[in-house]
Simulated assay, not measured.
Amino acid sequence: MENYISENISYLVTRMRSSQDELGAIFDLKRGTINTYISKKAQPKIDTIQRICEYFDITIDAFINTSLEETKSGKFVKNDIATNVATNIDVVAKEIEIRDELIAFYKEKVESYEKEKNTLEIITRIENKLDTSLETNKTLFSEIEEYFELMKLKENLEKAKNIETHHKSKK
């Protein structure tokens, strides 16, 4: 019984506008292996046929028993191959875009944390300086207080002298 496996693999390579290497890469097969299928020197294993059919959304029956090239009406091909490839490219592009957005988001977070860490270090240094300043200021304020008290005492002493002088002059 004749089958169309080799013709259909050749047709899929042509329809995808790719090389045998590219088709092989999709299904983890070497170019030589794809070439043996196309030249009818070998037949793919059933699991390889299943993966090809699943990838291109083709029934196994249509892939084996029907020429896909002759059924351009899409009778056996559920989805257009070019559409599948374009969809896959769109999905990969979207995944890359999402990845890039996540990288940017996490980069911004890291920068924010670094700025916050730097800010906290600066605040800690200022607090330490303030603590030192407060001790210095307390000492300074004490000295100023003592000075003002001394000044008041001198002023009061002067007043007392003036009062005493004033009383002596009245007498």
Rank of each mutant, 00 (worst) to 15 (best):
K159L: 12
S142K: 07
E158D: 08
K154Y: 08
T136N: 08
N156V: 00
D131R: 13
E145F: 03
T139W: 02
L150V: 00
E135G: 01
I144P: 01
K138V: 05
L140T: 12
F148T: 03
L134E: 11
E135Q: 07
E135L: 13
K154A: 15
T136I: 14
E135W: 00
E149N: 11
E146S: 07
E155G: 02
I126P: 01
F141V: 15
T139Y: 06
E127R: 13
F148C: 06
L134V: 14
E149L: 07
T132F: 07
N128V: 05
I144T: 02
K138N: 09
T132K: 08
L157F: 07
F141L: 15
E146I: 03
D131P: 00
E155K: 10
F141D: 04
F141G: 00
T132L: 10
T139K: 14
E145I: 04
N128F: 06
E127C: 04
L130V: 10
S142H: 02
N128E: 15
E158C: 03
L150P: 00
K159E: 08
E135S: 09
K152Q: 08
E155V: 03
K138M: 08
E145C: 02
E149R: 07
I126T: 10
D131S: 14
E145R: 04
L134H: 09
E146F: 02
S142E: 06
F141P: 00
E149P: 00
K138I: 10
E127V: 11
L157R: 06
N156L: 06
I144K: 05
Y147V: 00
F141Q: 12
F141W: 02
E135P: 00
E135I: 12
E127K: 15
E145D: 11
F141H: 05
L140I: 03
L134A: 11
L157W: 03
L134F: 09
L150G: 04
R125V: 10
E143W: 00
E143A: 01
F141E: 10
S133V: 02
T132D: 12
D131K: 14
I144F: 03
K159A: 05
S142G: 12
E158S: 10
L150T: 10
N137F: 09
F148M: 08
L150K: 13
T132M: 09
N156K: 06
K138C: 01
